[in-house]
C-alpha cells in the first residue's frame, strides 16, 4: 500500500484521469472530493459491502409467493 501525506486543498491523481482532493479535515473526519470519469463507480466501502451482502441474502429466497401474496393482501386491509 502506498501512503502519502496531503494537506487540505491538495490532491492525488490516479492514472491521469482520477483526482482525489482533501477538501476538509475536521478532527477524525476527512472530507474528500473526487473527480473521475463516469464509468468509475464511487461508493463508501461499508455501503458497497452492505449492498453486496444484502443482494446475496436476497437471492433465491425460495419464497412461497402464494403465502407472500395472501399475507400482503391480509395486512393491507388491517393497515388502513
Amino acid at each position: 500500500m502506498l501512503i502519502l501525506s496531503r494537506r487540505r486543498g491538495q490532491s492525488i491523481v490516479i492514472n491521469n484521469d482520477i483526482e482525489i482532493f482533501v477538501t476538509a479535515i475536521e478532527g477524525e473526519q476527512v472530507k474528500l472530493g473526487i473527480v473521475a470519469p463516469k464509468e468509475f463507480n464511487i461508493a463508501r466501502k461499508e455501503v458497497l459491502e452492505e449492498v453486496r451482502l444484502t443482494n446475496n441474502m436476497s437471492l433465491n429466497a425460495h419464497v412461497d409467493l402464494e403465502d407472500l401474496k395472501s399475507w400482503s393482501l391480509r395486512t393491507k386491509n388491517t393497515g388502513e
Binding site: R44, E50, T75
Partner: peptide, 24 residues
C-alpha cells in the same frame, strides 16, 4: 443498472410495510 444512492438517508435493509405494521 443497480445504483447506490450516495449521501441518501435510505438503508439497504429497510423494513417492508412499516405503516401496515403499525395498523396491525
Amino acid at each position: 443498472r443497480q445504483i447506490i444512492l450516495n449521501g441518501s438517508p435510505y438503508q439497504a435493509q429497510s423494513r417492508l410495510f412499516p405503516i401496515r405494521n403499525e395498523g396491525a
